[in-house]
Computed example of a mutant assay.
Amino acid sequence: MLKIVPIVALSLAAVAAISAAAGAFRWSGMTHNLRARLDAARAPVVPASVSFAGLEDLPAPVRRYFRTVLRDGQPMVAGVRVRHRGTFNMGETADQWKPFTSDQQVITRRPGFDWDGRVSMMPGLTVRVHDAYVGGEGILHAAVLGLFPVADMRGTRAVAEGELMRFFAEAPWYPTALLPDQGVRWDAVDDRRARGTLVDGPLTLAMLFTFNDEGLIDTVRAEARGRTVGDRIIPTPWQGRFWNYQERGGMVVPLEGEVAWLLPEGEKPYWRGRIAEIRYEFARP
């Protein structure tokens, strides 16, 4: 029996290693296909540079924000590559924070992104996640080791709306996408808040942006984003919060953030992350 135990352990380790390798290969192919679709959905970024001439009619906090984070005449952001590190809350009731790393690709016109995440559940056991908005389609796919699906949501209006909300809320990382000539309409609320509206195809989103004393975006809130509870999707208030703004790519962008559901009993954060690397692709005249 003592001789058999090491053999069984080695066999299990070999099976785990083979499964991990097979999952990584399969996941890599899926990522390649998603990002090829993302690239195919691109539209020209017009105009190719920022002009402060069109800002005067905007609500005061929005106008102050653009003048704080951008420079007049700088090129528009066409694409972004972001690498994150942080923790993800996997618990529906009690908190279960797990470390993650991710690689995200974004295009600003037509709005789209693919977030490719790796959540470490325990040593040797990783959940791979694609959270994406590609060509107007929302996608949420998660699989243990990249092989065994635990979530696969796509093709519905609710999923598409939720993913477009994520693109809109994360725009402080690519702030030129929030300019009026990039399709965002701004309406005043008060001296600290403004409502932004974004349209993509049949989808129209309105989100509340709150600005801090420095004129930077503090929070972005949606009154109803689809939250998965069991086998149901429940519209729930949702919020992203940003801080630690620094200069990157000639713009002032946040390097840390948190995302939370706003439940009747209080906030339930489920994503906390920081930017490990961010690279921009700019529009060409």
Rank of each mutant, 00 (worst) to 15 (best):
L255H: 15
V80F: 04
Y133F: 15
H141C: 03
G183N: 06
A14R: 10
F282N: 06
G73I: 02
I4L: 15
A283T: 10
V5E: 10
N244L: 11
P59Q: 05
D231Y: 07
P123C: 12
A206D: 10
A53Y: 01
R284W: 00
V220I: 14
T210E: 11
W115R: 02
L203V: 12
G273Y: 10
L164P: 00
G162P: 00
Y65I: 01
A132Y: 05
K268S: 13
N33Y: 04
G29V: 01
G136T: 00
R225D: 02
V62W: 06
V134F: 01
A48P: 08
Q96D: 15
D191R: 11
A177I: 05
R71C: 01
Q239G: 00
G249C: 13
T93N: 11
F168M: 11
F211N: 04
I139Q: 03
D103N: 07
A171D: 05
R118D: 12
V144H: 04
A17G: 14
M1L: 15
Q104F: 02
R241I: 09
A17W: 08
K98R: 12
A158M: 07
D114K: 03
P6Y: 10
V150D: 07
A20L: 02
V252W: 00
V119H: 05
G79A: 09
T68F: 05
A94F: 02
A194H: 00
G117K: 01
V50P: 03
V129S: 13
A43R: 07
R193T: 11
P285F: 10
R71A: 10
